[in-house]
Each structure stands twice: as structure tokens, then as C-alpha cells.
Amino acid sequence: MTSTLSPPGTPPGPPTGPPAATARGLTRTYGRGDAAVHALRGVDLDLPRGRFTAIMGPSGSGKSTLMHCLAGLDVPDAGTVAVAGVALESLDDTALTLFRREHVGFVFQSFNLLPMLTAQQNVVLPLDLAGRRPDPARLAEVVDTLGLRDRLGHRPSELSGGQQQRVAIARALVAQPAIVFADEPTGNLDSESSAEVLGFLRRSVRELGQTVVMVTHEVDAAAYADDVVVIADGAVRAHLVDPGADVLLATLRGDR
């Protein structure tokens, strides 16, 4: 089912080394009997390290479910997930939580920040929870890259949607996690803010060497990514490496 198309000659080049995350035979079913919904039906996937991967597909195709399973937020009914070489199914809830806090970053579509904490407090929250002090250099680098310097003392309600998403990205990046997951991070933003946020995500991959996996509906957003995984009906339809806009559109159209 998985086809790998690899148009030649687009930087920074195809992946090498072990993948940041792998999934094998991932199955997730909601409900039972007649009402059963097969959100994922045996997904096999390798997400390469140091790259910006977009997951695309029609609504209800299982993108969010896949991301939740990959990130250890949800437990699949069958199949295995490994992130940074660790098999998630071997971890109990507490170990899984500790693993997430060390190795995984998140950006969600909305409700990303805790309303009672300032931007700065939100950014360092995962480190706080782990009882670690943020590395000041890294913090400064991330904050400056995202242009948040003069917004750090504000609460989420005092920030624009785009700024809120940038704070969320900063939070995801500051601990240098093995992988960052973003679920429609631009879903609530206008095109200008979207471009800004997506640009930052790409810079974090290119300049900070991060691995980012982003779920999105929008072809424009996917264009920022290096690779695109296309999902339909709970299964991977295609895994495109450095697709051009035309290849991407063709693949998506072919799915409809």
C-alpha cells in the first residue's frame, strides 16, 4: 500500500539513519459491534529524523488518532509504536508520561496554553514538570527565533491566536525533544499568521535540527513540509519524500 516516490535533487536530501518514530500494524477502533469505527486499520509508518513531515488526508481519515498513538497520548488496540528507539507499549502510564515529558513536544490546534500561566511559564512548563531548569541559551534561542521576547510576561488571553501558537511551538522546542507533533497548528489562524507559524516550524527543523510531524488539511501548509504522508480511511495511502506541489496535488486528487 505504501508507495515511496522520491523526486530527485531537493535539499536537504532524503533521510538517513534510524527513524525518529516508527509504527507497525497500528490499529485503533472506537466503539464496538455495529457502531464500531475503524479509525486506524494497520498503519505501518517510519518518520525520518531531522525532517518536517506533514500528515494529510480527508476529515475523519484518522490523522489525529494516528498522531495521538504515535505520541503516546492514546493506546492503540494493536500494533507497536517506537519513538526514539523506545517501544511505547512497554511503558506503563507513569513511565509513558515521563517519556513524553522528556522526548515529545506538542502543538495543538487550539487550547494549547494554560490560561493561568504567563507565556514564559507556559514555555518552560514541561521542564518544570520534569523538575529541570531550562538551558538559558536554548531558551533565549527559541524565544528569539519565535519573536516572543517582549510577550513573555503576558497571559494567553492577552495574546493573539498566532502569538499563542508561537508560544506553544516554543514550548515544544525548548526541551529539545526527539520529536514534535503538531495537530493542525494553523487551523484557527489567518493566512498571514499561518505562514508565520509554519515558517517557524520549518526553521526549527532546518536551523535547530528538530524532527516535526504536523497534521494538516491544507495543501498550502503541507508545502512547508519536507515529506508528506497521505492517509485515507485509516491507512497510509502514500509517503511522499520532498514532493513538488504538482505531485502532492496529484496524489491528493487521486485519493478523492
Binding site: 507513569t94 508520561t97 513524553r100 515529558r101 522528556e102 506538542f106 514541561p126 514538570l129 514550548r171
Partner: peptide
């Protein structure tokens, strides 16, 4: 509910 889920996603253990 969502706040707690977010905190849990970011690494707050059940016990915490």
C-alpha cells in the same frame, strides 16, 4: 478537562 489533558500530554503524571 482539556487543561488537564494538556498537562498530561506535556508530562504531568497521574499521581502529580
Amino acid at each position: 478537562g482539556r487543561e488537564h489533558a494538556l498537562l498530561r500530554a506535556l508530562g504531568l503524571t497521574r499521581r502529580q
